[in-house]
C-alpha cells in the first residue's frame, strides 16, 4: 500500500540570497556552508578607522602580502560552518572520552613501562604551551585576515588547539600529577631542548601578516610537529615499547591532524595558484619557517628518539616537502 503524504506545494520566489546567487547561480539552493560563509564579512562603507591600527580599515586585505582577486576563492574542503564543526568535534570528543575512560578504568597508565611514562611526560607536557601559542596565533589570523572564507577556519583551529592543550593536560594528570605540569613548564622555560621551539613560538607572536602567520603556525610548525610527535614517536616508536595506551590518549590529535591538513593544503594551494607573485611569497615563507621549525623540533625529538632524531626529522621534512609539492609549492 502506498501512503501519500500531502503537503501544500508553493513555489519559492528565489532559491537563496542574492550574494550567493551572484556566485553560484540563482537556479539552485545553497548549502549551509555557503550561506554561512560567503560575504559574511562586511566590505564597504566602514565608519571609523581602528584606533589600534589607524593605518588600516577594520577588515583590510592589505594586512597581508598575499593578493587575491576574490578572497572567497578560499574554501574549506570540510565545509565547516559552526554547526558542522561542533558536531564533528563532539563526535571526536566522545571517542576521546571513551579512550580516557578505557585507560583510566583498566588502570592502563600503571602498566606503562617507567621509561615510556617518563618520555611521554617529558615530551608531551611542554607541548601544552605550544598548543596554547597556536590558540593565540589562530585567534590573531581570525581577527586580522580578510574574508570569512579565510578567517572562519582559524577560529575553529584556535579552539581546537585549546582543546588539544587541555587533552595534553589530562594526559599529564593521568600519567603524572599537577607537579608534572609544573615541571614541564619549568623545562619549557629553561631546558635547552625546548628553547629553540619556545623562541619559534614567541617569534610567531609578533608576525603581523595574517597569511604568513598561518604559514608559520598551521603549515610549517604543525606540519612537522604532528607527524613527528603523534604519528611517528607516539604511534610507532612508543607503541612498540608498550606505550599503546598513550596512543589512545592522543588519538584526538592524530585524527585532528589528518582532518585539518586537508584544509591547510587546500589553503596553500589556492593562495599559491592565484599568481606567480603569491607563489613566490608563499615559497619564501614556507621554506624559511620550515627550516626554523625543523631546527627547533630536532632537540625535542631527541627526548624520545636519541641518535635517530636527525634521520627521523629528515624523513618528516621530506614528507612535508612532498605534501607542499602536491599543493603546488616546490620547496
Amino acid at each position: 500500500m502506498q501512503i501519500d503524504l500531502r503537503t501544500v506545494t508553493i513555489k519559492p520566489l528565489r532559491q537563496t540570497f542574492d550574494n550567493i546567487a551572484r556566485r553560484i547561480g540563482a537556479d539552485k539552493p545553497a548549502s549551509r556552508y555557503q550561506e554561512g560563509t560567503l560575504d559574511m564579512q562586511q566590505t564597504a562603507n566602514f565608519h571609523y578607522r581602528p584606533t589600534w591600527d589607524p593605518a588600516h580599515d577594520i577588515y583590510d586585505a592589505s594586512r597581508t602580502a598575499i593578493k587575491m582577486a576574490d578572497w572567497y576563492a578560499f574554501k574549506d574542503p570540510r565545509q565547516f560552518y559552526y554547526g558542522a564543526y561542533t558536531l564533528a568535534r563532539a563526535k571526536q570528543q566522545d571517542t576521546a572520552e571513551a579512550n580516557f575512560d578505557f585507560v583510566e578504568n583498566r588502570g592502563l597508565a600503571a602498566t606503562l613501562p617507567e621509561s615510556v611514562r617518563k618520555t611521554v611526560l617529558e615530551l608531551l607536557l611542554p607541548l601544552r604551551h605550544v598548543a596554547w601559542g597556536s590558540n593565540m596565533n589562530n585567534a590573531s589570523v581570525c581577527a586580522y585576515s580578510y574574508g570569512t572564507g579565510f578567517s572562519q577556519p582559524h577560529i575553529y583551529q584556535a579552539m581546537d588547539q585549546l582543546g588539544i592543550a587541555q587533552y595534553l593536560t589530562r594526559v599529564g594528570l593521568l600519567l603524572g600529577d599537577v607537579e608534572s605540569l609544573d615541571e614541564a613548564k619549568r623545562a619549557w622555560m629553561d631546558d635547552d631542548a625546548w628553547q629553540g621551539l619556545r623562541r619559534y613560538v614567541e617569534d610567531s607572536f609578533v608576525i603581523k601578516d595574517p597569511v604568513e602567520l598561518f604559514v608559520a603556525q598551521n603549515v610549517a610548525l604543525d606540519g612537522l610537529l604532528y607527524p613527528l610527535v603523534y604519528e611517528t614517536i607516539i604511534d610507532d616508536v612508543l607503541s612498540s615499547q608498550g606505550g599503546t595506551p598513550v596512543a589512545m590518549l592522543t588519538q584526538f590529535m592524530t585524527d585532528w591532524f589528518t582532518e585539518t591538513r586537508k584544509w591547510v593544503d587546500a589553503t596553500v594551494k589556492i593562495a599559491a595558484a592565484e599568481s606567480p607573485e603569491n607563489k613566490e611569497v608563499m615559497t619564501r615563507w614556507l621554506s624559511q619557517w620550515r627550516d626554523r621549525s625543523a631546527a627547533a623540533l630536532l632537540p625535542v625529538a631527541r627526548i624520545a628518539l636519541g641518535d635517530r632524531s636527525d634521520e627521523v626529522v629528515g624523513e618528516v621534512v621530506q614528507q612535508f616537502n612532498a605534501r607542499m609539492a602536491k599543493a603546488g609549492v616546490a620547496l
Partner: peptide
C-alpha cells in the same frame, strides 16, 4: 575566544533560520 566562536554561531544560525 569562546564568545568569538559563539558569535559566528549566532550569525550563521540566524542566516540559516531566515534563509
Amino acid at each position: 575566544l569562546m564568545q568569538s566562536l559563539d558569535e559566528i554561531r549566532h550569525a550563521q544560525t540566524q542566516v540559516h533560520s531566515i534563509s
